[in-house]
């Protein structure tokens, strides 16, 4: 058994928490786990990538290019940026909306949202683009995008853990007063996959 997951987004979106949740869910099953992040200045609104590896015998913490089984994207362009990590036919669950960087406001670079979505839809594996902002409103908290995507992930076939196990791993990282909001977010993520 081997499961490599790449999580891409913008600093501050909760990708580190998502990677810890996945790793602890894997640990609960007695699997070897690794995560890798670049921490520091990149977190200031920069591109961030987390990598999670679960398996029977693991070496390094970083996933080779074209080897990840699943790509979770918290932001549209950052999902496109991480596609080279994904194996041919790997699954993508990502936010359809953009966080436009300052460089675009200043006219230094450009952001073509339609072209990004189109490119993702043309990938050979299963691709689900979610209206994450709308779903977060449904969950009742703007910062639950990461848990919504984990909920969506839990519906994919072939995962080593049951949805309930992943939810428990989520809740183990969440303070008491936000438990219900995050349970709801996880469920909203699961439901979003039924209609997608």
């Amino acid at each position: 058994m081997k499961l490599d997951i790449v999580i891409s987004g913008v600093g501050g979106q909760g990708s580190v928490l998502a990677s810890r949740v996945l790793a602890s869910a894997g640990m609960g099953l007695g699997l070897d786990v690794r995560t890798s992040e670049v921490i520091g200045m990149a977190q200031r609104e920069g591109s961030v990538t987390s990598q999670v590896r679960l398996g029977e015998k693991l070496y390094g913490a970083t996933i080779p290019d074209h080897e990840a089984d699943i790509l979770l994207g918290f932001e549209l362009a950052e999902t496109v940026r991480a596609v080279p990590k994904l194996k041919p036919g790997g699954a993508i669950i990502a936010s359809a909306s953009a966080i436009v960087p300052v460089s675009v406001q200043l006219g230094i670079s450009s952001y073509d949202q339609k072209a990004m979505q189109q490119y993702l839809r043309e990938q050979p594996g299963r691709v689900v683009l979610l209206d994450l902002e709308e779903l977060a409103k449904k969950a009742g908290h703007p910062k639950t995008g990461n848990v919504i995507i984990l909920g969506a992930l839990s519906t994919l076939p072939g995962l080593p853990f049951e949805p309930e196990q992943l939810l428990q791993a989520v809740l183990s990282y969440i303070p008491e007063k936000l438990q219900n909001t995050n349970k709801r977010a996880f469920e909203v993520g699961r439901q979003s996959m039924e209609v997608a």
Partner: peptide, 18 residues
């Protein structure tokens, strides 16, 4: 080597002051 479709031009997202 793996052949991959050319992605659309990506925006620069360097770190910025909060």
């Amino acid at each position: 080597s793996i052949e991959a479709a050319v992605p659309p031009e990506l925006p620069l997202r360097t770190p910025v002051l909060c």
